[in-house]
Amino acid sequence: MGIILFELALTGYFLAAAISVIDLIRGRTESAKLAIWLMAAGFALHVAAIAFRYFTGGHLPITSMHEAASFFACLISLIFFILIFRYRIGGFVSFIGPIVFLIMLFAAFMPRSAAAPGPEMPGPWPWIHALSAFTGIAAFAVAAGAGAMYLAQHYALKTKRFVGLSRSLPSLQVIDDINHRLTTLGFALFTIAIIAGALWAENVWEGLWRKDPKVLSALFTWLIYGICFMLRRFSGWKQRRAAILSIIGFAAILFTFLGVNLLLNTFHTFK
């Protein structure tokens, strides 16, 4: 049941991503509405799939790599739909749809067996850490999508190729606002995640965790976003530069989330 729901959600996301990317390549946004509906269908099934795992497993399904990636994609969709309702920006689907689909595809290739939380996850701290980290980086992911959309619109305006696509994308100012809000939200949640994580790890692993590559990588990412935040505030790194930084920041996130787990030896794994 859970697997069927997941596969159906993946299909919905795939169709949405395919249609919206074709739109993007053709420089139009005619099918944006259809893509959004497909993605909404995928999202509804996805929420059902996660709820199913929650009730059968008895805990938030984020303990295996498959579950973590799926949960992460679901949060990105959620933020995306909030933005769509708030700003009425249909063309955004071309930038978020593919991100959600690729993360889901990754999840699909991971072993799907459920993993019970071990003795190293006592009390509420691990869950606070995980939830705020997931939501925070989902916000960063959507900010990166907005950054890409900014660059597309910026490119169209700079090169004076004012075609169908840029006609239906929002104004630079609106995209910049979205980017700024998401980055701020993401940064706040990421900070909470780091503090909660440190409190929990100090109890369980004592000093050992501090040199873990994933922890170092996360701190490095936190630093990147911290610098972004400062630059924006004090040296006018707004608009285009902020858009580029949000994409670089997300690349660092991906490295922390996936690269370190897959390539390096770390304590901080999913099962």
Binding site: P170, Q173, V174
Partner: peptide, 20 residues
């Protein structure tokens, strides 16, 4: 919907940059 005079095109572009 879209501007078909030079001066309206300028306004349309301004809106694409500044929003409001």
């Amino acid at each position: 919907e879209s501007a078909v005079s030079i001066s309206f095109a300028a306004v349309e572009l301004a809106k694409k940059i500044f929003g409001e």
